[in-house]
């Protein structure tokens, strides 16, 4: 590969001198290897390993499916800056998903689907790519199609607000791995909520069209937020964002999902899993 010749400038000339080193957010410096490499995954005394695993799976599936949806925006966002921002959110959630699925698999290996003898597929991928729709534990909110930018903003706002509130509590969870995942996630989710909150306000007060779209989109996601759990703190934050934006909470009753997924999930998974399933013995 050819050398890149650049001026070896005095570090005072280069704002990137300190930036380009050891920064996990930079693509060319990012470590994409085993998410839990070197981490002690022993389940602490007094915690039911299966319960912990299914809990992590639920949290991981939420992140994975929303990440899958958000990455559909790639090359389709309203402008390049937003394309990059949405990809950042999707990448963060994908990172959370990997950690949580790996945690689930380590805590209770019996949850990992069986693959042909000798398959090199790692547990996180077996969980992501070789489970059927009914085995996914995510909330319906994250599997709904993206809709327009306003609907996506509303959904990120609701999701990030609930998840941030939850992750703040999980930073004192007895399981050290989950605690660490939560601590990392809190920073990310704060940013996601901030991104969505700012756009929510912008669209609410921007034009008549943006306001109409925001309200319509929010009505669709609002009815699904209860699946994320009871959380007064999250509700309070959402109330504040809506009030600041001058948007009334949509007058919609919770959708009764009967604990089942929507029709959208199996199609989403069909796309997500197609290559992996064609090559159960493949290495990537």
């Amino acid at each position: 590969m050819p050398e890149i010749h650049t001026h070896e400038a005095d570090e005072h000339d280069s704002a990137y001198a300190g930036l380009l080193v050891n920064d996990a957010h930079w693509a060319f410096g990012t470590d994409f290897e085993d998410p839990l490499a070197g981490v002690d995954t022993t389940v602490p005394e007094g915690i039911d390993a299966h319960e912990l695993a299914t809990y992590c799976l639920r949290l991981g599936d939420d992140a994975l499916i929303l990440s899958q949806r958000l990455s559909e925006w790639c090359s389709r966002a309203p402008d390049l800056e937003e394309d990059i921002a949405l990809a950042n959110v999707a990448l963060d959630l994908l990172g959370q998903a990997r950690l949580l699925l790996a945690r689930a698999a380590a805590a209770d290996p019996s949850l990992v689907p069986a693959l042909p003898e000798g398959s090199p597929v790692p547990p996180e991928d077996a969980l992501a790519f070789f489970r059927d729709d009914r085995e996914f534990r995510n909330a319906c909110l994250v599997e709904l199609p993206n809709g327009d930018f306003a609907e996506t903003v509303g959904r990120i706002l609701v999701f990030a607000t609930y998840r941030l509130s939850l992750f703040q509590r999980l930073t004192s969870h007895p399981d050290a791995v989950l605690r660490a995942v939560a601590a990392k996630g809190v920073k990310e989710l704060t940013y996601h909520r901030d991104f969505a909150g700012r756009w929510f306000l912008t669209l609410a007060r921007g034009s008549d069209e943006s306001r109409r779209r925001l309200e319509a989109g929010l009505a669709r996601t609002w009815a699904y937020r209860h699946e994320l759990g009871e959380d007064d703190e999250a509700e309070l934050v959402l109330e504040q964002v809506l009030a600041t934006s001058g948007i009334a909470a949509p007058d919609v009753r919770p959708i009764s999902t009967g604990g089942r997924h929507t029709e959208h999930l199996s199609r989403l998974l069909a796309e997500m899993q197609v290559v992996a399933r064609q090559h159960p013995m493949g290495v990537w």
């Binding site: 001198a17 300190g18 930036l19 390049l80 921002a85 700012r198």
Partner: peptide
Amino acid sequence: GKRGLNHVHVGSLHAPDDAMAVRH
């Protein structure tokens, strides 16, 4: 880039207002 250094011009971008420009 880090404490002790000057702010250095790194490029440009588009944004509707100052607050969004910082985010971008």
